[in-house]
């Protein structure tokens, strides 16, 4: 497989990139400007967010999918892999990992709607699910899933590492120490 893989030796800190690594990201080496890369990350994450809503996914798998995406583009260039296809693969994988699996057909159809909403052109799998456009879109996500798995080095149990998890425990501690908690968390 041609996609780069996470460094196996740096186990715990593998996903914390240094300033130099960030400044010399795969996208940067591929001629994408820093602002553009940031923008692409932002847009793709909100694409995942939108698709997650459309698919009625709980927050957890959506957050996990967004983390997969950011990790993936820490190792790969936005030019080399279509971000919307990668985003769908992230959702597809995160939903399975977080025990809320979604049929690939739904992901492909709903994400297509989110992506091309303005053009109002739904993707119809067809009665025997062999509409060539649909089959191509589906296969692209399946291939992207394999590249994604390899790139993130099968590290998909990431809940304990997410900032939100630490934030949550911090809030709990505050609450336990008597800080008023008017807002449900």
């Amino acid at each position: 497989m041609s996609a780069p893989r996470a460094d196996l030796e740096r186990s715990d800190t593998r996903w914390i990139l240094s300033t130099e690594e960030l400044a010399n990201s795969p996208s940067r080496r591929d001629g994408i400007k820093a602002e553009d890369e940031k923008k692409k990350r932002r847009q793709t994450v909100s694409f995942i967010e939108e698709c997650g809503k459309k698919l009625k996914l709980p927050k957890l798998p959506v957050v996990v999918a967004e983390t997969y995406l950011n990790r993936f583009y820490g190792l790969n260039s936005f030019k080399a892999y279509d971000r919307f296809v990668t985003a769908q693969a992230c959702l597809f994988l995160a939903a399975k990992v977080e025990e809320k699996p979604i049929k690939l057909e739904r992901i492909v159809v709903e994400c297509h709607l989110v992506r091309y909403e303005s053009r109002k052109r739904p993707l119809d799998p067809g009665p025997t699910k062999n509409n060539p456009d649909y089959v191509a879109a589906k296969n692209a996500v399946l291939e992207a899933e394999r590249v994604l798995l390899y790139s993130i080095n099968y590290d998909f149990d990431i809940l304990n590492l997410l900032p939100i998890t630490h934030f949550e425990s911090l809030l709990r501690k505050l609450k336990d120490s008597g800080v008023r908690d008017d807002q449900p968390f």
Partner: peptide, 22 residues
């Protein structure tokens, strides 16, 4: 065989890797 043409990487395989890795 990870490349299931319908639902991608097998759910049970994912679970096993998720729970056992590390």
């Amino acid at each position: 065989r990870a490349g299931d043409p319908v639902e991608g990487v097998n759910f049970q395989v994912l679970r096993e890797i998720k729970m056992l890795k590390g």
